[in-house]
Simulated scan of single mutants.
Amino acid sequence: MASAPARTGSESAEPLTFGRRLRRERMWRRWSQLQLAHRIREVGGMHRGSAELPSLLIMISKWENNHKVPSQYSLHLLAAALGVPVANLGLPVDADFVF
């Protein structure tokens, strides 16, 4: 009887949730949550603005832990801050939303 192959640390039976995708994108860049918050503020300044750093840090934690889902604006802001297509973050995208 053949045994099942051992799992490596990078494999997971769980699907990639939004929070895991967000954390993976941030960590791939070796950014802290604070660095992502600063980047969101920078990108937000070119659009409709963004929250203050303390609020952003709380929201990033809630998003990464799947306790909250970002609004369409925040989703687009996150994608722009990370430099990825919005669809890469794994949430439904409103085709009518204008960033």
Rank of each mutant, 00 (worst) to 15 (best):
S74M: 12
M27V: 14
S50C: 14
M59R: 02
G19A: 03
S32G: 11
A37T: 07
A81D: 04
A37L: 12
R41Q: 12
A13H: 00
P15A: 02
L77P: 05
L16M: 08
G49E: 03
S71N: 11
Q72Y: 05
S61N: 02
L77R: 04
V43E: 12
P15K: 01
E11G: 00
D96V: 06
W31Q: 11
W63T: 07
L82A: 09
P54V: 14
L16K: 02
W63F: 15
G90A: 02
L82M: 10
P15D: 08
G90I: 00
E64I: 15
E64T: 10
S10L: 03
L36E: 01
V86L: 07
R39A: 13
A95T: 02
H38N: 14
L22P: 12
S74A: 13
L78N: 03
V98W: 03
E64S: 12
I60N: 08
S10K: 00
Q33R: 11
V69S: 06
S50I: 11
H67G: 01
E25C: 11
V98T: 07
E25N: 10
W63N: 09
L56T: 03
I40N: 02
I40H: 01
E11N: 00
H76C: 13
I40G: 08
Y73Q: 10
E14L: 15
L77N: 09
T17W: 01
F18I: 02
D94C: 11
N88G: 00
R21V: 13
K62P: 03
R23L: 14
S74F: 07
R20M: 04
E52S: 07
G44F: 11
R30M: 13
G44Q: 09
